[in-house]
Nucleic acid binder design. Structure first.
Lengths: 240, 240
DNA sequence: CGTTGATTTGAGTAAGATCAAGTCGGGTGG
DNA sequence: CCACCCGACTTGATCTTACTCAAATCAACG
């Protein structure tokens, strides 16, 4: 898939590139990788790998403890970048796993450095993406630390709905929802059982519908109120 | 305090600057701010302010919910940078508050952008700092989500001890510890009461000593084992 | 001294964990 | 076609961690 025909870039949520940047990016792209659902994209604790852009599909960043407890730090949707942290800090502190079938654009090893040298505005965009990623984690942390179970499930669903929407994944009143309840539990620091009961509660209240791998939000306003969620995503974001 | 005489830069944990960078940084520094303990450095939800480097003292990043629940996302120590997120995303999603008396180096409004244009390697360093900050939050998230109370208190104490040490704050076997138990609770998503009992437990086990605003670690190895903490901080880090 | 904020202790409670069976649905092999 | 398997989802019962409420102690400070 040549960058010039990137299906993401024309979406309203993404910022257009500047002069010469498209050519630059195209030149640095060394290939595309396809990974099956459940496959590992970056091994936990591995050495620096490539930098990737998620072209299609969903993934998540996580850490595991020796006894198997797992915490999901964030979910990755099309347009998100991955491997920046590993590249800069020379090692990964977390793993990345595919949630659905995933396509990745892989960039040459020294891409990050050459962006900084050759295309400063694009480098700033890269940092923007890093900052945006941290903001998502910050919000997730509020969920895990201070929200009750209903509140955090609500917050997660709103956040994923919004993000999926701006990645162009909304169809009708629903977006794809490839997470199992185990993923939700691991993202929110809850047990699967409690996650299940909590999601049922939201369903019975008529606030969300989940089924067939899709999520529909019945009453966004109420859901937001329950979550005390008011982060609004940036109107446009850079896409590397 | 002129940058040429910065007390942090000579510390073994910090990376030396390259040709011309010191002059550049000096030129962009527009002043220094002093803030008393408990003072607000960045208001929650405020517009983009300056970018600051923490010259001395401790601070923390946090979010509050309407009903007063608070989550501390991370603690800031000398050498840490703050305001990057706000500058890039044009608004803060969190507040920053001083824990002790704090001195900040303030930089001119468009500093970030000019770094990218004029000193690419320094820009890369800036991104390094952002990535490093996110890594800390990732680890905190593991605590809040998946560690038990003892485990997360242990992890927090080890992490702060190490960071304080590499900021040159260790004296004998102890480092400053300006947090109240309320701060610890808000960082770990626990109640103050439970935090208190948990810290007593660690004290009675002889693993830590806390008093007079200082923290001494009696048995780092055991503390680490309890925390299942094995992140090692980078050997050297950039300082803006 | 009196006030204020931090820490500590005790008692009762609740949110959420754990354990143990189910059910349901889609895929596989006989 | 059907038996069976496996993973995801559900349900019920019980238990525990950590929360809440309330009050006491303690230290710093004006």
């Amino acid at each position: 898939m040549p960058c010039a025909q990137c299906p993401l870039r024309p979406l309203p949520g993404f910022k257009p590139l500047r002069e010469g940047e498209l050519a630059f990016i195209s030149r640095r792209k060394v290939g595309q990788r396809r990974i099956e659902p459940g496959g590992s994209i970056v091994a936990e604790g591995g050495a620096a790998a490539h930098v990737f852009t998620l072209l299609s599909g969903w993934a998540f960043r996580f850490k595991t403890m020796t006894d198997g407890r797992r915490q999901i730090m964030s979910f990755l949707l099309p347009g998100d970048i991955l491997g920046l942290q590993a590249e800069l800090l020379e090692a990964t502190a977390h793993g990345v796993e595919a949630l659905t079938e995933v396509s990745l654009c892989a960039f040459a090893r020294d891409t990050v450095w050459s962006v900084y040298r050759v295309h400063p505005p694009l480098a700033l965009d890269l940092t923007w993406l890093a900052a945006h990623g941290e903001r998502l984690v910050d919000d997730a942390m509020l969920s895990v630390g201070r929200r009750t179970a209903v509140e955090s499930v609500a917050a997660l669903l709103v956040s994923l709905f919004k993000r999926a929407e701006s990645a162009g994944l909304r169809e009708g009143d629903s977006v794809p929802f490839p997470l199992t309840q185990t993923h939700v539990a691991d993202a929110l620091g809850l047990s699967v059982v409690h996650t299940n009961r909590t999601m049922q509660r939201l369903r019975r209240m008529g606030l969300v519908r989940i089924g067939d791998g899709r999520l529909a939000v019945g009453d966004l306003r109420s859901l937001r109120r329950i979550a005390q969620y008011w982060e609004q995503p940036a109107p446009v974001r850079p896409l590397f």
